[in-house]
């Protein structure tokens, strides 16, 4: 098999690094399968949210709970972070300059942390208004879905930090490259989930 062949969906290393490219096929395919399974988790959480939407039990209803400004800023942050991760991936593939990869990965993580911080701020202010999961089935559905996404982003951030350390320690060895490629898939996946949350939870709730 030649290096110019696509080994998996998404960004391929190809002739930029034929050795890692050869190894990546199985590793990245496996991660796609994991994402598929994770997508099922989110699909069910979305479905549950939809089912619970009517269970407000006399408590707050969606348009009282959500703030479009906050959700829009979070969306912007997360979408930008996907763009910067794209730059990081390209830096890894073509430049072989470590600091560029480190820079963009670092920016991505900062945006990730900003996103998490903003969301926590949202949840805290919701809780202050008594909008907590114990209030109603609808709020339970919300808190099962959105913080689950946040938990994923948090894991992504921890993973990214570990990768930054590993880039320092090992340089761009095949394992590091493969794991950066996996993390990038994970990150973009979470972006897509967020777009779902933004449209299904926030936009629909405020419409």
């Amino acid at each position: 098999m030649s290096a110019d062949e696509l080994k998996h969906a998404g960004l391929n290393l190809q002739e930029a690094d034929p050795l890692t490219h050869e190894k990546a096929g199985e590793a990245i395919f496996g991660f796609w399968v994991f994402l598929m399974s994770d997508a099922v988790v989110f699909a069910l959480l979305f479905a549950t949210y939809g089912v619970m939407l009517r269970g407000t039990a006399g408590g707050p209803v969606p348009h009282e709970v959500y703030e479009i400004k906050s959700a829009f800023i979070e969306t912007l942050i997360l979408l930008s972070s996907s763009f910067t991760f794209g730059l990081a991936s390209l830096a890894m593939k073509y430049e072989h300059k470590r600091h560029q990869l480190e820079l963009w990965l670092g920016v991505t993580l900062l945006l990730g942390f900003a996103f998490i911080g903003w969301e926590i701020h949202d949840f805290v202010s919701m809780a202050a208004k008594g909008e907590v999961p114990s209030r109603s089935g609808y709020l339970s559905g919300f808190y099962a879905l959105v913080p689950m996404h946040m938990l994923h982003v948090t894991i992504g951030c921890v993973w990214g930090m570990v990768m930054l350390v590993q880039i320092r320690k090992f340089g761009l060895d095949p394992m590091v490259k493969i794991n950066v490629m996996r993390l990038s898939l994970f990150w973009h996946f979470l972006d897509i989930i967020w777009i779902g949350i933004f449209s299904v939870v926030y936009l629909q709730g405020l419409a």
């Binding site: 269970g55 407000t56 408590g59 114990s134 089935g137 339970s140 559905g141």
Partner: peptide, 18 residues
């Protein structure tokens, strides 16, 4: 587990659980 540990109401009889 969320219902049992964190007082969610996803499957409870009351408060909109299903």
């Amino acid at each position: 587990a969320l219902d049992r540990y964190l007082d969610f109401h996803l499957f409870t009889t009351d408060l909109g659980g299903n």
